[in-house]
């Protein structure tokens, strides 16, 4: 028996927004520690990793590990039937071929349930080694979304360069060049509005704007986002999900042919 009840059901709706542009289907791996999902986008350029800890749920029960293969388009349709204020419960029997989503209104006067067929998925799991990144940059998530949107107009690729002075995002294309420099915040009233850079060595890497823009679909999950970079390894874009977990995106840098 698996059962996970989330008081703040809107978080699951936001998680779905953060996943569905990159992934058509994915396996939700449930254990007594919580729910994890790891999947590559169809082109194998980027990797998405979601972690929702058991403690973050109001009620959590997982008698035996199970992997639920879900079509995210179908799951998204079902979650659209939940109001933002609803409490959401995900339920499945052991070895079942369906999962049930239960939506309760806050005052319990409306309860809906939707059953969805599960899929058999060939899972590909990648091992991600522990990495000490040369640069980590924390910035407001809305600022990062704006930068990705603005620079996408100039070209397909964006260069992210981090030095001790700050971080520079640039893109070049037919119409010209765009550069956006962010300096580290000197002082801030609110932690989530700060730009904070930790740097061991300067790094400059090139990434496809298309994927960065897809990652920013997670913006509503967190007020800030962390970018981690080292030379010649994938960028990590991490959005924390309140007290419950995180979603991380790994994007391979572009390489010269």
């Amino acid at each position: 028996m698996f059962e996970a009840r989330l008081l703040q059901g809107s978080l699951l709706k936001k998680v779905m927004e953060a996943l569905k542009e990159l992934l058509n289907e994915a396996a939700w791996d449930c254990s007594d520690a919580g729910i994890q999902l790891q999947a590559m986008d169809n082109s194998h350029v980027s990797l998405v990793s979601l972690n929702l800890r058991a403690e973050g749920f109001d009620k959590y029960r997982c008698d035996r590990n199970l992997s639920m293969g879900m079509n995210l388009g179908s799951m998204s349709k079902i979650l659209k039937c939940a109001s933002n204020e609803d409490i959401i419960t995900i339920k499945a029997q052991d070895n079942a071929d369906t999962v049930t989503f239960v939506f309760e209104s806050p005052d319990q006067d409306k309860v809906s349930d939707y059953e969805m067929k599960l899929m058999n998925l060939d899972q590909e799991h990648l091992g991600i080694p522990e990495t000490d990144y040369a640069c980590t940059i924390r910035l407001p998530s809305s600022e990062f979304a704006r930068i990705c949107r603005d620079l996408s107009q100039f070209g397909e690729s964006m260069v992210i360069s981090c030095t001790k002075e700050g971080v520079r995002f640039s893109a070049t294309g037919d119409i010209g060049t765009g550069n956006i420099k962010l300096a580290q915040s000197a002082k801030v009233d609110k932690e989530e509005e700060a730009v904070v850079i930790e740097m061991q060595e300067p790094v400059s890497l090139t990434f496809a704007c298309r994927y960065l823009n897809s990652f920013t679909k997670a913006t509503s999950l967190s007020k800030s986002v962390q970018l981690s970079m080292s030379p010649e390894v994938p960028l990590v874009v991490e959005y924390k999900i309140e007290d419950i977990g995180h979603v991380r995106y790994y994007l391979a840098p572009k390489i010269e042919d």
Binding site: M40, S43, H44, V45, S46, L47, E124, H125, L126, G127, I128, P129, S157, T206, A208, V233, P234, Y250, L251, A252, P253, K254, I255, E256, D257
Partner: peptide
Amino acid sequence: KELQSKITKYYYHI
């Protein structure tokens, strides 16, 4: 010409 590298170039299947 630039090429987009794949994530499987860096991380391996487990």
